[in-house]
Design a protein around this nucleic acid. Structure first.
Lengths: 143, 143
DNA sequence: ATAAATGCAAATCGTTTGCAACGGA
DNA sequence: TCCGTTGCAAACGATTTGCATTTAT
């Protein structure tokens, strides 16, 4: 399904679905939640598949362009991505102790945002709401 | 006022308020809204004051540690800071066309977030809500 | 055969750091 | 004098890019 989207996207632009790109796409889709380029690269290597870091970066950019994935946030360790397909919009809680990410969604918050944009004459394309703090586990550990 | 806070903070740690740090502090405080290290550096230089890039980065980190400023977001062009003092918490709209930043605040959204955290057993320390899109001006330009 | 994609290594960009020279306390 | 601080340049880490080589169509 997603593979179809990607290959169509590439074909339209006269680009090719090589085995490296396929490997990267497959591995990316197999991931559940959020991921970053380096760990994706390591995982691909661990599987015995070959694809350079350069190709990983290049392919992730392509996947972003065609809307399969998107950048969630930038941390000191790099960019974090997530899948967009089959995923409705949501926001994130990020544990600053263990890096755990919790997704959530609030229809009310969405509506409020729309209202605020309208008031400002702002044409909102997308948004990110990130709450940083300590997850349940790390809270317990702390005390 | 802010200068007092900074010098006290430094003294407590056995550190010194040098003229470079003073220059950086002053220039930073003179800025209204958001800023990034490089443009701050350029502005300082333009004023004829001397302070190296290294010192700018080092001093901004100190100012973060003592809570005078904080990191708002990371863009492809670097980290964006803002003042914390005398500024109540607020969120941002970021125009992806001209970079213009609009601040806003919604008590309701804040409350909703608290509720969501509680539900997840998450101890929220801080959060950022960033709406990206086109500001009024750029909207008009587009069509 | 042609044009695109690869891997590598070098190049970037923002930021940090090691170090010798400098300067307040 | 004693340490903290500075500026510079080198070091960094994430990402991009130039280029010669490989590969899909």
């Amino acid at each position: 399904m997603d593979k179809k989207i990607f290959s169509t996207f590439l074909k339209e632009r006269g680009q090719r679905l090589t085995k490296e790109r396929t490997a990267i796409l497959r591995r990316t889709l197999s991931l559940r939640g959020h991921f970053d380029p380096e760990s994706l690269y390591v995982k691909i290597r661990a599987t015995g598949l070959k694809a350079s870091r350069a190709s990983v970066y290049r392919t992730l950019n392509l996947m972003c362009e065609c809307g399969l994935i998107e950048k969630v946030t930038k941390t000191e360790h790099g960019t974090i991505y997530e899948h967009t397909l089959g995923q409705s919009h949501h926001d994130h809680m990020l544990c600053i102790s263990c890096g755990h990410i919790i997704e959530f969604f609030s229809e009310t918050i969405e509506k409020l945002q729309e209202g605020i944009c309208k008031k400002q004459g702002f044409d909102g394309v997308n948004h990110t709401l990130e709450i940083r703090g300590y997850c349940r586990k790390c809270r317990k550990k702390k005390k």
